[in-house]
Design a protein around this nucleic acid. Sequence first.
DNA 1: TAAGATTGAAATGTCAATCTTA
DNA 2: TAAGATTGACATTTCAATCTTA
Lengths: 147, 147
Amino acid sequence: MRGIRQIFDDLVRFETVLWAEVDARLRRQCTLSLGSLNVMMVVDATPDCRVYDIARALEITVGGASQAVDRLESAGRCARRANPADRRSSLIELTGAGRTLLGEAVAVFDEELDRLLREPLGQGDLDRLGTTLATLRRAASGAGPQP
Amino acid sequence: MRGIRQIFDDLVRFETVLWAEVDARLRRQCTLSLGSLNVMMVVDATPDCRVYDIARALEITVGGASQAVDRLESAGRCARRANPADRRSSLIELTGAGRTLLGEAVAVFDEELDRLLREPLGQGDLDRLGTTLATLRRAASGAGPQP
DNA sequence: TAAGATTGAAATGTCAATCTTA
DNA sequence: TAAGATTGACATTTCAATCTTA
């Protein structure tokens, strides 16, 4: 009998190890943290990307997303430009150097995901995991905190 | 086609939301963070518990575990006592107040896990998720970082 | 030398207050 | 008023250096 606490534990601890290992390799090979890579992937995939869009995609606060963009901008990897449609916000874009770095980093990222997710499971179990996680995320994000 | 990046994203983001929601309810109802609860559960379950044992169980660094014990000890929820078998380390135990609080907190914890893990999935898919996560964790923790 | 632990500094997130514009 | 963003204070973690004991 696997208790539900054990499942929580394996979920959280595996996520910790997965994050730490991918992060360590990205820092060594690309001088880029996994947190920053995640932000860059959202910026790259979102047309007219605002700080708010990053916060929602990564399930972090708007304040945290603003600071993450600050760090990327200081490193010359993204830039804020004026939003012609709404002067309260900026549109965030990758710089040329940012796009180049992103290409290198996602290659490393995919290698690590293969090693730590696909190889231990195989494609069938991996697909079932994906379906299950999508269900869980939809339920948790949709319901919101219990009032 | 669910890509492997999407699976990583759902895993990390669901874990973020799960942690945040359980943490928020524990802070409101028990004046206890989820991080501290995890430490207390390890201390409670481990005979002759040392800082090193906490670090390994939670997949965090020894330094982080030491500071987490500091915080619990300051709150009067655990105590270090001398280790008669090895004077480099201490044995960590819950105080009476700590044990009482732990009992209240795990009840809330279990309710939240039911709400956020079992209810969206049902028992069958939950069990399959548990098996898959155990496989992933064993593979990742066993292999260690890629040299 | 190595193992266990502690500590201070840096990274990164949350929260709350505040500012600007819709 | 509300929405989007920024900022400063705080919490928690990692990393490296250091200390004590095996």
